[in-house]
């Protein structure tokens, strides 16, 4: 797992390696599960409309499957340029 910008600050770490429970099927399942890991995770994920997700470096919707993913990132809407 990778976290960026204020998601990283609220979670408290930039990255962590996790063996995901096989019951987690979609990105939404993952977010629900992650939110139970710590108060920081819960704070970062309290407003789902404010976070975006990348699965193996491609943008992924909340209904996207996570099976086999090696790198999942959670971050705020982007503000480049």
């Amino acid at each position: 797992m990778l976290y960026f910008a204020w998601v990283r600050e609220r979670v408290g770490v930039a990255e962590e390696t996790i063996d995901l429970p096989p019951a987690l099927v979609t990105v939404a399942d993952l977010l629900d599960w992650l939110a139970t890991r710590s108060p920081g995770h819960a704070a970062a994920l309290s407003d789902r409309s404010a976070v975006r997700v990348g699965v193996d470096q491609d943008f992924a919707g909340f209904d996207a499957p996570i099976a086999g993913a090696r790198e999942i990132a959670i971050f705020p809407p982007v503000t480049g340029g």
Binding site: F4, G54, F59, F75, P76, V78, T79, G80, G81
Partner: peptide, 9 residues
């Protein structure tokens, strides 16, 4: 770049 590139200011 303004809407999809993964940068955060």
């Amino acid at each position: 770049l303004k809407t999809r590139a993964p940068f955060w200011k």
